[in-house]
Amino acid sequence: MARRIDVHHHLAAPHLLPGLIDAGILLKHDAEAMTAAHALDDMDKGGVTTAINSPPAPPHAVIDNRDRAISFARENNEYFARLVSDHKGRFGFFAALPMPYVDAVLKEIEYALDTLKADGVYLMTSYQDHWLGDAVFAPVFDELNRRKTLIYTHPLSPYCCTKPLKEVVMPDAMIEFGTDTTRAIANMVFGGTSRRCPDLRVIWSHAGGTMPFLIYRFLKTAGIPVNAQKLPQGVVHELKRFYYDTAQASHPVLLTALKQVVGLEHTVFGSDYPWGLSPTCVAELEAAGVLSADEMRAIDYANILPLLPRFQ
């Protein structure tokens, strides 16, 4: 049977779902879809053999409270670990971390990777208006680099840009998420973390936010002498080391841009379940007319499989 691995797949410990509804992160019907049974049903329909789970974005109120951040991470991680053993081969997980509390994060990394055997970790693109790559997070990246950890990232709307448009009713996912991913990419590359931590493998959601369309600006920024010194092999070399998922990014314009800027060797399948359904994602990727059968197979599983030893 052909394999398909979904790296962008959101579930959460059942007792945490009501809080996520109250915080406006989930609608009621999103939460209802976030059970193992419903998820497996969707996976079967879309030919997804394995989904690597991560929780939805924690609300700002969780990020801002150390104890809540710690319990949000731990309770989701224990739930995800149970799903891995309850449904052999069907689920993996990216461990949630109690960012931005670095000492607690280091403890959770140890527990999640050593005891719960997570497949990687889950980081938001920014926390409290500090983006991935900021110096405050250096100990976290050094430890993840030492462990050669796979990092799956997901955007949120930072404080600075939460619901900026007052006249229209739309989730911040529409515009602000894409930009926050781009900020984090720029911060990781131009801040030097990506070169200081060469063993990190980082997945950016949604085809890299808006980075591929802003590539000319990235090239210009890389030409600023202080940045050029940090990037002896150029900015595109760094961008090609990252991985990019296809969640909410199956339009031919996006896929073509991604292919041109970084190639498809590090593009990986993501559905954004429960906001994206896997059969729809597969159909849209195929209908885009951009991907060859070989490229589709690589995106489905061959690109990501080397980074997921437990599923090899």
């Binding site: 208006d129 983006w131 790559g133 900021d134 110096a135 930072p158 600075c160 840009c161 515009i175 602000e176 894409g178 930009t179 781009t182 900020r183 720029a186 911060n187 131009f190 801040g191 808006t210 369309f213 802003l214 600006r217 990235f218 210009k220 920024t221 600023i224 202080v226 940045n227």
Partner: peptide, 19 residues
Amino acid sequence: TQDILKEIDIRDSSIEYGT
């Protein structure tokens, strides 16, 4: 969003203008 990426040398025109 002015100058929000404080630790890197990047102009607001690079990311923020487009958004």
